[in-house]
């Protein structure tokens, strides 16, 4: 009997230790207030960050056009292999939106995927990209978001199966896949570096154009190399030099107007991306094109291997 009790105590002890380890490993990250101590937000600059980061594409009401894209009431649904996510209200409404958030709250959401109450956000919110955003840009974005029209619409819950309902587990996911390191490193020209910032820190192109592994982490070795469409059939194209042979000027013109080099036009989700990017200065669109030319080429996968 004494032996049984000992085994029980040992098992219980191990379980508690494992639980404590899990709790410690999965804790949401937060930045100290000092990170924003020296910056103050500029709403006009924030507007450019807003367009470059594509906030409206997910957080505007489904089908919103023109000025209505500035009402970030949420509601758009995103099917994925892990369930269906619904974009929340991030308008500056005090109860329904993020009106009560400080700039530091927004910074922690963007950089750590951590809510003001200390919970994990799902990575459908691309903090794996925004972690590279500068404190200044995060503060500017905060200043701009707070000036947008508030919407009282309540955020809808996500529709996920167990075990993805346990948010705490995301802490472990973040340990694996949340990193502030640049994907494309090396000696970049100032233009290429600007393009890298626009793509890797704001535009989150990689979230759709890069394939994911079984845990939903990006396969960084195939960065921008094309991926199955999470919303259904078809593939999102390879935009590395291994899949896209457009000239730099052609890429920039496409991002500005939606016209391909043979004057077909963008459709689907990319039409919305163009709506955002058309607000950026041409020098920024050329910078994105310069960066795309610099990304390591990935060989396109055969269609048959994917479907």
């Amino acid at each position: 009997m004494a032996r049984m009790r000992r085994i029980f105590a040992l098992t219980a002890g191990l379980a508690i230790a494992a639980g404590a380890l899990f709790w410690w490993l999965s804790a949401p990250g937060r930045a100290p207030a000092s990170v924003l101590a020296a910056v103050s937000g500029d709403a006009a600059r924030g507007e450019a960050i807003f367009h470059a980061a594509g906030c409206a594409s997910c957080h505007a009401a489904p089908g919103a056009k023109g000025e209505a894209r500035l009402v970030l009431s949420g509601g758009r649904r995103f099917p994925s292999p892990f369930g269906t996510f619904t974009a929340p209200n991030i308008s500056p409404h005090l109860e329904a939106g993020i009106g009560s958030w400080s700039a530091l709250d927004l910074y922690n959401a963007l950089h750590h995927g951590t809510s003001p109450k200390g919970g994990h956000y799902y990575p459908a919110f691309p903090y794996t990209t925004y972690i590279r955003m500068t404190p200044q840009d995060a503060a500017d974005l905060h200043a701009w978001l707070m000036r947008l029209p508030p919407s009282p619409k309540a955020s809808a819950p996500h529709d996920l199966p167990f075990p993805f309902t346990i948010r705490r587990g995301l802490g472990l996911w973040k340990r694996l896949y949340l990193s502030p390191d640049w994907i494309v490193s090396g000696d970049l020209s100032p233009e290429e570096a600007r393009g890298r910032y626009l793509v890797e820190a704001l535009g989150h192109c990689g979230e759709c154009h890069t394939p994911r592994n079984a845990l939903g982490g990006l396969e960084k070795a195939r960065w921008l190399g094309g991926a199955p469409n999470p919303a259904g059939k078809g593939r999102i194209p390879n935009i590395t030099p291994g899949g896209l042979d457009w000239s730099k000027a052609d890429i920039a013109y496409y991002l500005e107007t939606g016209f391909t080099p043979d004057f077909d036009s963008a459709g689907g989700e990319m039409a919305e991306v163009v709506e955002n990017l058309s607000h950026l200065p041409k020098s920024d669109l050329m910078a994105i094109a310069a960066y795309l030319k610099r990304v390591p080429p990935v060989k396109s996968e055969k269609k048959s291997a994917q479907e």
């Binding site: 078809g234 036009s265 459709g267 689907g268 039409a271």
Partner: peptide
């Protein structure tokens, strides 16, 4: 774009 966004299937 307005029409292709809604009504054209993306290329495979």
């Amino acid at each position: 774009k307005a029409c292709h966004k809604e009504y054209r299937k993306p290329k495979d």
